[in-house]
Design a protein around this nucleic acid. Sequence first.
DNA 1: GTCTATATCTCGATAGAC
DNA 2: GTCTATCGAGATATAGAC
Lengths: 199, 199
Amino acid sequence: MQTTRDRLVEVSSDLFRRQGYVASGLKQIAAEADAQIGSLYHFFPGGKSELGAEAIRRSGAMYGMLIPAVFDPAPDVAAAVRDFFAGAAEHLVETNYADACPIATVALEVSSTSDGLRRACAEVFESWIAAGTERFVAAGLPEGIARQLAIGMLTALEGAFVLARAARDTEALRIAGELTASTVERTLAEHLEHEQSSR
Amino acid sequence: MQTTRDRLVEVSSDLFRRQGYVASGLKQIAAEADAQIGSLYHFFPGGKSELGAEAIRRSGAMYGMLIPAVFDPAPDVAAAVRDFFAGAAEHLVETNYADACPIATVALEVSSTSDGLRRACAEVFESWIAAGTERFVAAGLPEGIARQLAIGMLTALEGAFVLARAARDTEALRIAGELTASTVERTLAEHLEHEQSSR
DNA sequence: GTCTATATCTCGATAGAC
DNA sequence: GTCTATCGAGATATAGAC
């Protein structure tokens, strides 16, 4: 059974993804979580920023689980990248262009106004980069190159989310996904070449 | 001389870029523009959303001017892409990681809550894509490929802005810029190859 | 732990004098 | 066109009964 505390964090995460941090009021959060304002401050004495930080970390952990979920069953990393963008596009359409990245809106809103929340977002992004790097290393790439690809994939995805939500169109996601997958394929091929020539 | 109306739009643009649409109150906007609330509603009877739409379009026009400003003097398009990301990183550091994309924060905030503002953002993104497409066409690429590269460049830039502001680090911008420039170089080379083989 | 009531502030928006 | 005063709603946060 889900506790009141869990529901508050989950509802916050959902609202932040759809409308951002500032527009999500504590009364709205409490109401949608079937909780009272008093309970909210009982669990989060630090108020909105404390609840916000925890919602960001929870979103990060949940969304980060998609990385192994998509990469592990895929035949190769380039196919996994294609699956990742295709899945993101599908989910975006299914949710009427509401559910893209759970923390990007918050990250942009608070980066210059709340250092605590900014750091929480930065830690989540870094955890995603680390998870992506692992998969590219497992595919045979050296650590540095793998990290570059992970960052390239995440930046392409985040940027495509911005354009796709604004245009209510998945074009940007499709193109960014294909460009990223091609870059991964080319990088793998180049690396294998170097491996062979150095033997 | 700048009119009260101009100052209101300019201040709105600046505040939106740093802290987003929702967090920027009309009183703060009026105060920083040395104007009164009454004047604001005199020029923008539609209130915040009318002022917001105009601020988005103004930001879009201003930032869009960077595309010819960076691409026209560059020796080639790949170098222009590198210059663009390097310039963005430099400006971000100079402004203490505040001034990245002028409309991305607003786009994510309002995409699911205000159709008018969402459309204004979508139109700006489309105008940037069109301007970028022109430059890649001028470099010798067919329209479709040129548009893909323009979208790829913009998504990479937008995503890198999100990560860079959150991390207070330009790593994502540097990597996204290099990956994008490489993709542009590879695409140009491939196209020239096809051109030759079809002669 | 839960709930209600409320304090204080700021929001967007309006009215009307000048 | 400019300015002040103010409205009603909603914001975050707190106090205290149960």
